[in-house]
Design a protein around this nucleic acid. Structure first.
Lengths: 343, 343
DNA sequence: ATTATTTGTGCAATCGATTGCATAAATAAT
DNA sequence: ATTATTTATGCAATCGATTGCACAAATAAT
């Protein structure tokens, strides 16, 4: 099969009896090209169905129009929505997004960043893995003068732009809501992991209790991996404890779901006997019975913000890169699992 | 800030008093290089922290190690899982994946393919949008001799490798299962859209009924957009109809979920009064009450398969590209929503 | 010992677009 | 009419790696 040979600026140049330089300048809007030449070039380019070879352009100019995007897991709603958000902004500016996943493995994370650098991406947008040991690979990115934007899972050890949601505020809203619904004995599911976001949620929970004059009892806080099974296990313990409880605020929707299952299995009514609030607005939360109250993190908007920060950094003078930490406000989505009073 | 200048093969060459050609050959395992030189080159490369400039390599060799991947929507579990699957295989072979989404808009689809070609990807893996008007943009890909793999939403109009699941079989399994559970009046939710996969599911439904000697009644088939609201609407109609029904097989989990809601709102018990089966194994299906029986499409495996077909095409002689249609077998995941008899 | 073959490197062109510098032609200034 | 300036284009190097061809040195064959 005869492959359509791709047209280059040289083909256009030959047809018009000018040089490739002239064509290149005409196509790039260089003002030193006469109107007549420019029009002729554009016309011929269209006729020959010219498409620029971005690889050649990238080699010469040093800009590939590629963004490397690293997430722990591609097929988790939160992350895929962020990718979506980044893609939307990037594509509108004629940038493309390369995705890689770390699967929470430090080695994968290092390799992905290296691969991005070898592919000569113009910068990186990433969420740090749970098992990250150090940040040397990210520092290399910064040393090369490339924009680096961290989202959701960030670190103060890197001086670079970041986007997070206000986890404290989300937890505070969630807990306050439960209190407003008349709950006073509110358990909390969290994790030991040293990731800031969970500490912040814990802090929001504690502060909301205190601000409403409720003594916070450390026996009501359960630590695990925040998966469905953890939520189930914590709930069983709760049921065995002598202390009563009338609500659970879980730092993850999955663990909240585990709680919902166990509570229902034990004949407890939600929200009448126990009110339930999760975190993250996983897609399934609107389909549980009852639907689960949760905290929306606006992942698509987070993606937009990350992309905007990226392009800010990209377009600023290297010396003047403004590193900016953007904190998005979460939203409490109130559903039946916590709604004891009719509003 | 001083940016670490990237080392090139010329730096290595200079240090060893050889030429760049020799270095290039040594690094690429060309057999015409002596062992001693090769070792020296590798050693120096390591010392200088050399990383190849893939852009330069791509320009010369014509291979970018990039795969363009086009999906309708990035943040839908099915598609993000396929992306995940493709990414896993691609990364293990040192290829990177660029993702774009069409949002089901034909124009976006065309633009994405063009952008991929301009970025000089080595090939494309795509799922056709619902509103695709023609396939010229895909034909261009093939004319350039680039591998093109279609998954899930494919078309016989393009002679290229494809991966689909056996929708007919999935529907047949689902319907047969309902019959085995004792159901005889089984409604079906489908869509008018001219996409093969839904026709196949419809066919599987009808054939399963006939094979079990159950007359198929067109009044039990409801057509819509297969979203939650459609499922709700269809179910309300079903309840108003004089004919009785004891099961619903929905071609989508969302519509099945809508049915579950309406049935429960009307005091019907699932599965005792009406058994329910969906399709796609959306993540939420295991969290509904009762959990929803559905058909698993193995999206990650589908991504693996798509990637493998891609690399097969890439590595075969252009003249001999074997276009292969792979049909994956789906799995019926039986959950409480359809389990009337204890097994 | 002479010719043929193999082995290891170098030379230089190439991939396609970009860009600093030079230069011819056209226009403006004196 | 001559010089200065502007305008439009060409020349050639460059980005970094790859590769066909040439060629000297080393080894094998006669």
């Amino acid at each position: 099969m005869e492959h359509t040979k791709k047209t280059t600026i040289h083909d256009i140049a030959a047809k018009l009896n000018v040089t490739a330089s002239t064509v290149s300048r005409a196509l790039n809007g260089n003002p030193r090209i006469s109107d007549s030449t420019r029009k002729a070039v554009l016309k011929t380019a269209r006729e020959l169905n010219y498409a620029p070879n971005q690889i050649a352009s990238a080699l010469r100019s040093g800009r590939t129009q590629l963004i490397g995007m690293l997430v722990p897991t591609i097929n988790r709603s939160f992350f895929s929505s962020i990718i979506r958000g980044v893609e939307e902004v990037a594509n509108s500016l004629d940038y493309r997004v390369i995705v890689s996943q770390s699967n929470e493995a430090f080695e994968n994370e290092e390799n992905a960043v290296k691969a991005f650098l070898n592919a000569r991406v113009d910068g990186i947008i990433a969420s740090i893995g749970k098992n990250t040991q150090h940040f040397d690979h990210y520092k290399q990115v910064l040393e090369r003068g490339l924009p680096l934007v961290l989202f959701d899972r960030t670190t103060p050890q890197l001086l670079t732009s970041q986007v997070v949601i206000d986890d404290y505020q989300g937890a505070y809203l969630a807990t306050s809501h439960l209190i407003q619904q008349g709950c006073t004995k509110i358990a909390h599911f969290t994790t030991e992991r040293k990731i800031d976001i969970y500490k912040e949620r814990y802090r929001g929970y504690v502060n909301a209790l205190e601000d409403h004059g409720i003594a916070h009892n450390e026996a009501s806080v359960f630590s695990g991996n925040l998966q469905l099974e953890d939520g189930r296990a914590h709930s069983k313990l709760l049921l065995q404890q002598p202390e009563d409880f009338d609500a659970i605020f879980s730092a993850s929707d999955y663990a909240a779901m585990g709680a919902m299952q166990v509570l229902k299995e034990n004949g407890l009514k939600i929200p009448e006997d126990v009110a339930l609030v999760g975190f993250l607005n996983e897609p399934f939360t609107s389909f549980t019975d009852p639907p689960l109250t949760t905290v929306n993190q606006f992942p698509i908007e987070m993606g937009h913000t990350a992309a905007n920060l990226f392009f800010n950094a990209l377009n600023s003078e290297r010396e003047k890169i403004v590193t900016k930490k953007t904190v998005l406000q979460p939203e409490l989505i109130i559903r039946a699992s916590s709604l004891k009073k009719k509003p």
